[in-house]
Amino acid sequence: MPSMAMPAPDGGRPRPSASDYRVALVLPRSGPAGIFGLECLAAAELAAAEIDAAGGVAGRSVRYVHVDAGGDPDVVAGHIGALLAADEIDAITGWHLSNLRQSIARVVQGRAPYVYAAAYEGGESSDGVLCSGEVPGDQILASLSWLRTELGLRRWYLVGNDYVWPRETAARTLEGLRGLDIGVLRCRFVPLGTESPTVWGSVLDEIVHTGAEGVITLLVGSDAVRFNRAFAEADLADSIVRFSPFIDETVVLATGAQATKNLFVSAGWFSSLGTASAVEFARKFRGAWDLVCGAEPLGTSVAPSPGTMAETTYSGMHLLAGIAGRSIPTVHDARRAFSSWAWDSPHGTVELRAGEARHPVHLAVADGVDLDVVARVSTGSR
């Protein structure tokens, strides 16, 4: 499915000045992850507005240098490197895929703080890089244990896109399941941007052939939408459960109510959490969405519910701005935060220990195009 259109970079704003805190905001405008671009942009703008209202980053106003994360990872990373070499950015953040994170980390090489604001496979230790998203143990293993206890699901089939996050996440999941009475019968990886009905049909045939009771989907954006629709069209939703740690409200809405039966999702954030901080974030997000995208008719909000990807983008920017206290964040500050740090997010306190962010994680089930939280499966504490 086509990705959402995004506003032109900087919207014609003047070139950032010395009084600005210049952040490369790396968000997808194209490719399978492009579906998340607008929600992440609105969330990033909300975070910037809040930071500026509180005095800025050491008195400097946040100014984004927009970078499309949807291209070839090495090309995008090369652009980040050129911005650093020209002294046009002070830091990097944003929601994007792990293959791009690895390329950016290799190019940056500790020259600027870099907050990677997405759930990921774990293990990142590059100099100056902070990964603020959920990791498989909290997000996947805890959810599979809940589904085993509550629904009796033991036999799983895993399908993911063919790049580092799904493959490494699958490997960590298999390792974590050793010794348990939960097993993955087969893993299948398909290229990013797979549109072929034949490929999806062969995946569905394998699922049926293995006798799996559930399917773990490690698919990105529009690929997850295509799979979910094909799954429902094959009449598998009544007999086989789906579970994903990488679907949010945006993907569920794009999938459609007719294709979300027995779909479970785990994440730190859901718009249905109902806590005071969650309600407040959702309210402010709607205002930011309308400013970024415009409301029509005048005075009427057309904003969707903020998804997980939006909330992680927002939290990642706040993490970046906060690691130095009243000073401009440096790589030294990122190194210190890597060892031990904590920050408040709309879904609760997140702790960063030895480079691993520990989130309270919830499990939700789709109800049409909504995601209803059914359990808290991990506190995020060790």
Rank of each mutant, 00 (worst) to 15 (best):
R60V: 01
R353N: 09
S315Y: 02
H332C: 10
R167L: 04
I51R: 04
P197Y: 04
G193W: 03
A112W: 08
L38V: 14
L153N: 03
V302M: 06
R22F: 00
G94W: 09
A54I: 03
A44V: 01
P7N: 06
L371E: 03
Y157P: 00
G128N: 10
R286E: 14
V203Q: 06
A82W: 00
D181N: 13
A267V: 06
E280D: 14
E195G: 05
E134S: 11
N99P: 00
T275D: 10
A47C: 04
G221D: 07
S272G: 02
V279D: 13
T308L: 07
R60E: 03
L204E: 03
R229G: 09
V292R: 06
I328M: 11
T330D: 07
A82S: 15
A82K: 13
A105H: 02
W156F: 14
A276T: 07
V23I: 15
A171L: 09
R188T: 15
E45N: 13
V265K: 02
M4R: 12
G110Y: 07
G70C: 09
R15P: 00
A142V: 05
V65H: 11
S271R: 02
M309Q: 13
G183N: 10
T313G: 02
R335L: 12
L253S: 13
R60W: 07
V67E: 08
G152S: 10
V190S: 06
V135H: 11
L192T: 07
V292I: 09
G322E: 09
A171Q: 12
T349C: 08
E356T: 12
